[in-house]
Design a protein around this nucleic acid. Structure first.
Length: 550
RNA sequence: GCGCCAGUAGCUCAGCUGGAUAGAGCAACGGAUUUCUAAUCCGUAGGUCUGGGGUUCGAGUCCCUGCUGGCGUGCCA
């Protein structure tokens, strides 16, 4: 990395000058070209320490560093910034490195094999996945891919709420549709039941298997049969939808299973042992107000059933027990009230709360004809993940969702997304990749190959945009690290778009394959195949395909 | 009321641990195709970064405060 090399050079320089220094200065790529390839605030940061004016310190540093061959020029500007222009050979050497790294370029041990549990989507198993889940899926999966690429052990988990109130309602909804199928007339379908067409389908499927024999067994058994059938079918639907979205989980954690294994009782007993529970009004309470929550919360309701909080505490307890270093919960914005309760419980159980991170994904507004579409799973008015993939395609959907930072609202204009035209930025990125593939084919036809390529040819890569492209590609590791550190994969999406943009500009300005200038062509081919490789790597990390043809 | 999140170009959004002249895409306008894919490129125009105060060499970025919007504040999950 050039940046770290410059940083080290500056430190060496400060030492040589026998100055005090603080190493919290930075080496950055300035956003104005005139300020050089790289820039540092080292003199600004360290001037005071040595009773010097920033500008004077900058001068001293410049004098020493100028002797190095790697720098084309060193200038002092503004209040004391030092701007570096690097020799072309520095970029060329780094380009060779990128090419040699092949499809591992950018991967590293940055994560030091830290174990990360990434829980996302965790939609209720009571219906098909909707666009909110799509956003969570694109986000979580991309983040996991990036983290794993740079040396973390990221583990993807989907928590299935397959027990509790909403599952009872699911069973009852099935029962009603089932009765309907068998000739019973329903005066009206209850508002709280699930209205989606898929319930009718499931009831019909069950009817084919079991016929009318379910009427002859006990109500409790019948409801259980209905529930389990629906749960399994819906789970399978969700898995298939996610496969179509290129999202796969390492584990599906079942709440029902947690209950069966006695995890709820275990969690409750731990809380009781910690003297954090008490009885009042025929219910069992958790004194969460002692741990930063606004007020105490009910754990066991008057009817003897646990509230949703209990299985969630139990679930998070297992996260800790499984030895992860960091737990990341990806949640909707409507859950932030819930997190304070959960964190209170983890505190009460003396868990390391700093390990538990919550990322809130903000809501999505679906815009149709300029108006927000209201969605409700119970009323059956949802736009499903499958619909979305059918309409705009997997690649566009994933790009769209991962292209913005998690805690920003997202307006999804269905009409625009359906257009499937050049307005969609994902095509822009993919097209760059396809274009390069096409140029490489043409080069083959023209019999210009890299066989007799000599690295000396790289000297011919001296155009400003060529050096900019190399510089951009060298930024990849920094971008990936930032994505992981901030849990913000959208930075990579922005990056791909920028890199694709540079290539398109390059293509427009210069001819790559030119039979009359074989060596020049070879040099440029070398460069664009590196670009193609970086595009493929980054698109893949975002779960987007990199087509050879479009 | 209290809590969380957001407010950047007409629209949708970027802006890396504070850095120099705030950037893209779309929309608008004007150009480029005997050409390696025009799903592209070049140019023009568009801004009091929600208002105010503070911190410092320096603030879209950090702190305080006002305003606006979304969400939360269940013995629902």
């Amino acid at each position: 990395m050039i940046k770290t090399k410059i940083f080290a050079d500056i430190v060496a320089c400060l030492k040589k000058l026998d100055l005090k220094y603080n190493d919290n200065f930075t080496v950055e790529i300035p956003n104005v070209k005139e300020h050089g390839d790289f820039s540092t605030n080292a003199a600004l940061i360290n001037a005071k320490l040595n009773n010097l004016k920033p500008h004077d310190l900058a001068l001293k540093i410049k004098e020493i560093m100028q002797k190095g061959k790697n720098y084309k020029s060193i200038d002092i500007a503004g209040p004391g910034f030092i701007n570096f222009k690097m020799a072309n050979s520095v970029f060329h050497r780094n380009l060779i490195q990128i090419v040699n790294d092949k499809n591992n370029y950018g991967s590293s041990n940055y994560g030091k094999r830290q174990k990360i549990l990434l829980e996302f989507i965790s939609a209720n198993p009571t219906g098909p996945l909707n666009v909110v889940s799509a956003r969570a899926g694109a986000y979580g999966d991309s983040l996991a891919r990036i983290m794993n690429y740079i040396g973390f052990d990221a583990f993807k988990e989907f928590y299935v709420n397959d027990a509790g109130n909403q599952v009872d309602i699911l069973g009852e909804s099935m029962e009603l549709r089932y009765r309907e199928l068998h000739g019973e007339r329903l005066d009206e379908f209850p508002e709280e039941a699930y209205h989606g067409e898929y319930i009718k389908d499931l009831a019909a499927q069950l009817s084919v298997i079991d016929g009318s024999k379910l009427f002859h067994i006990a109500e409790k058994d019948r409801l259980e049969r209905m529930q389990n059938f629906a749960l399994e079918a819906i789970h399978n639907m969700q898995v298939i939808s996610l496969n179509g979205f290129d999202v796969q989980f390492d584990n599906w954690m079942s709440e029902k299973k947690l209950r069966a294994e006695g995890m709820l009782e275990e969690a409750l007993s731990y809380l009781a042992e910690a003297n954090c529970t008490y009885e009042k009004d025929d219910a069992v309470w958790f004194c969460s107000s002692q741990f930063g929550d606004e007020k105490d919360r009910v754990l066991i309701k008057t009817d003897g059933n646990p509230t949703y909080l209990v299985p969630d505490i139990a679930y998070h307890l297992t996260k800790y027990q499984r030895g992860f270093d960091v737990l990341i919960d990806v949640l909707g914005p409507d859950h932030h009230g819930h997190v304070s309760k959960l964190k209170a419980a983890m505190l009460a159980l003396e868990m390391d709360i700093s390990k538990l991170e919550v990322v809130y994904l903000q809501h999505i507004n679906l815009i149709q004809d300029g108006e927000a579409v209201k969605m409700s799973k119970r009323a059956g008015k949802i736009v499903t993940l499958d619909d979305l993939i059918d309409e705009v395609g997997k690649d566009a959907a994933r790009y769209f969702f991962v292209n913005r930072k998690p805690n920003a609202h997202l307006d999804f204009d269905l009409k625009l997304a359906k257009k499937k035209s050049s307005e969609n930025p994902v095509y822009y990125c993919q097209y760059a990749h396809a274009r390069i593939a096409s140029i490489l084919k043409k080069a083959k036809k023209e019999k210009i190959t890299l066989k007799d390529f000599n690295t000396k040819n790289l000297k011919r890569l001296d155009k400003e945009i060529e050096l900019s492209i190399i510089k951009k590609m060298l930024e990849l590791p920094t971008i990936l690290n930032a994505c992981a550190d901030h849990r913000e994969p959208h930075r990579l999406a922005v990056y791909v778009h920028e890199l694709a943009g540079l290539f398109h500009r390059y293509y427009g300005k210069y001819t790559i394959v030119d039979a009359k200038h074989k060596e020049l062509s070879q040099s440029r081919l070398y460069l664009i195949s590196a670009i193609m490789n970086v595009l493929a790597i980054t698109l893949n990390l975002l779960g987007i395909s990199a087509p050879e043809k479009m």
